[in-house]
Design a protein around this nucleic acid. Structure first.
Lengths: 153, 153
DNA sequence: TGCGATTTAATCGCATACGACTTATCTGTA
DNA sequence: TACAGATAAGTCGTATGCGATTAAATCGCA
């Protein structure tokens, strides 16, 4: 059975790209979380910023950025919005005026009760073991990519 | 060893979220691909659109969108840019004027030789088996999420 | 056959990401 | 101590994603 009529080049297949699997899964997560986040009035990046602050309050922008893999150019507008919504406080560090310390307000802390357990483990369709294995694998992948990207720079 | 002084609430940990693993890995992929894509003068979404067209040329916007998990509101501007760059052609379907058919130009087809094998398997730090397992697992996750999101709507 | 419902692409506004740059502050050292 | 260089946050421009809406074409059925 040779080639019939369509040329169908033997190029790379989108469906086999790991990068595309990650990319499209990220889009899918966004859509799956949307209804829950809408109820909280937050976007996904706003939400993870809040989660990071639950874990460790009173952080600088760059320390927060390291945890979220974002830099000030992306994070600052998000934090300003959260400030406008009354969930965080931003204040210059007295010790080093270059830095800005970000802290949760009571209102921001109260968000914890409202929307959570929003872990979406169910929607993943994975067993807890699979979930955990996948999670660890993806994190390893991420860290390898970061390392590789750093090397290129 | 009880709690010492920091309140450290027992909330969800960012590092354990699968959604965050996917989100941050997507960012990491973007950074890892950047140097290669810059050399081609393409962004990542532009690139995957081209790959999808290598696989199946002469598609409608919505058929392309199904493969890329994007809709016309996102895809149209990307396709117009690719058209302006001379890599694709966009023409109304004579049979059904609502549809727009997207095809690669010779220039678009030639991109295949230029930047590829850009699979980044190396940078992933995974063995081929791990790579393949991960890829399949993430795709399953994505499809489950899509299904779950559809149910909510 | 006529016309309301549906389908398809496109437009618009908002919220990220991010490279390039700016501004303010701090640090190390001559 | 003065000042070049480093550092932190922020600004700006460009390119996605995506909800809401619009415009054009087609469909379905009374």
């Amino acid at each position: 059975m040779k080639s019939k009529d369509a040329p169908k080049p033997a190029g790379p297949k989108l469906a086999e790209f790991l990068c595309f699997a990650i990319y499209s899964t990220n889009l899918a997560y966004g859509r799956a979380y949307k209804p829950i986040l809408d109820a909280l009035g937050l976007t996904y990046p706003q939400y993870i910023a809040i989660v990071a602050l639950w874990e460790e309050d009173h952080q600088t922008v760059s320390s927060l950025g390291e945890k979220l893999f974002l830099e000030s150019n992306t994070l600052t507008p998000i934090l300003k919005k959260l400030e406008a919504m009354g969930y965080v406080r931003r204040q210059r560090d007295r010790e080093d005026e270059r830095q800005v310390l970000v802290s949760l307000t009571d209102s921001g802390r109260r968000l914890r009760e409202k929307g959570l357990g929003m872990n979406l483990v169910k929607a993943s369709g994975l067993t807890p073991e699979e979930f955990s294995t996948m999670q660890k694998g993806v994190v390893t992948l991420r860290d390898n990519l970061i390392k590789a990207a750093r090397g290129k720079k």
